[in-house]
Simulated scan of single mutants.
Amino acid sequence: MKPNPTRSALLVIDMENGFVHPEGGHWIRFAQSMVPNCVRAVELARAKGIPVFFVKRLYRADGSDVELTRYPGWVAGGRACRPASTGPNSAQAPEGLRPQPGDYTIIKPRWSAFFQTELDLILRRLDVRTVILTGTTTPNCIRTTCYDAIALEYNTVVLTDCCSSHTEEIQRVNLEDMARAGAILMDSASFADYGPGTVEDLSAAIRARMLEEDTVPEPFRSEDGQVFWPDLW
């Protein structure tokens, strides 16, 4: 395992034929045009010692694991994201976005890369503090992963020209919302200069400040009189 001085990980989410290919059942209009930027980000991450996670969506042939809200579209759209096929509805990734030795593959059952997956466990084992998000779609899988990452105390970066939506307006407003929630927006050109210290470890900074100020948390008292002390660690 290479040294990872940035303590970061790059996530490539749902960049597979079912979403990227124009004939795919879940096709996203701007996904294909973002492939070169995603490939470049992956190459940069590997060169920097940043572990790369390919987060994929795979559906069973009978559709028993498809989201209930997506099932009608999955049937009508040609049953996308199946591992056994290689056509426009397959889970095959574009050239340059396929795992290499040392990369990780995560299979997610829903939108967020963290929902019922081992991603958080592996990131913590790798001592990762910052996640960098790329892929599709911005309002769904990127956004839910972003919010879960922040909730789990990861510093969260979104590479704006490495993720995609169905329209430019959807892309813009969702990026703005994620920024308001605390995500750091960066483009792939800026990512070329990414290194230790580019992103502040906010959780570590908060802990350091509390220790410096010798802050003692106030207990929480429930209505029945029970006392709960917050666990800072």
Score class of each variant (00 low, 15 high):
A151E: 06
E118G: 14
I132W: 09
D14L: 02
F19P: 13
G102P: 15
L10E: 06
R57G: 11
G49D: 02
C38I: 00
R209D: 15
H26G: 15
T145D: 14
A47L: 01
V35L: 10
I184H: 04
T134I: 12
L133P: 11
G195Y: 03
P22F: 00
E23S: 14
G77A: 05
P230C: 02
E212R: 15
K108N: 08
D231L: 02
L123A: 00
F53A: 04
S164N: 14
A183Y: 03
Q100K: 13
T145G: 12
G77S: 08
D62K: 07
A181N: 11
N4R: 14
G63E: 01
R172P: 08
W111C: 12
L202D: 08
L152Y: 14
S33Q: 12
N17I: 06
A205N: 10
A47Y: 02
D103C: 14
T136D: 08
S112N: 10
I13T: 01
A204Y: 09
C141P: 15
N4A: 05
V227Y: 01
A45C: 06
V199H: 11
G135K: 13
T160W: 15
A45F: 01
E168S: 14
P99G: 07
A45T: 00
D193P: 15
D120L: 01
E23Q: 12
T156S: 03
N89D: 05
G225Q: 06
L121A: 07
V173E: 11
T130A: 05
A204S: 11
D214L: 06
D103Y: 09
I13S: 01
T138M: 01
P88L: 00
A31W: 04
A91W: 05
R60L: 11
F54D: 00
T167Q: 09
A31Y: 04
A189Y: 06
L152K: 11
T117S: 10
N140G: 10
A80N: 14
V42T: 04
S203A: 07
N17K: 13
R57W: 09
V55S: 12
F228C: 03
R79Q: 06
G24S: 02
M15A: 01
F115T: 13
E43I: 02
M178F: 12
P219S: 03
K48R: 01
K56G: 15
M1E: 13
Q92H: 13
A179H: 14
R40D: 05
M210K: 14
H26P: 14
I122M: 00
T134M: 08
C38Q: 04
V158I: 04
T69N: 05
E118R: 13
K56A: 10
G49N: 03
A189M: 04
S85V: 10
L175Y: 12
I13G: 02
S190F: 09
T134Q: 10
V20Q: 02
D214Y: 07
T130E: 08
P5N: 05
T215Q: 14
E16M: 05
P83L: 05
T69Q: 02
L11I: 09
A31R: 09
C162K: 03
G18Q: 09
Y71N: 05
I107M: 14
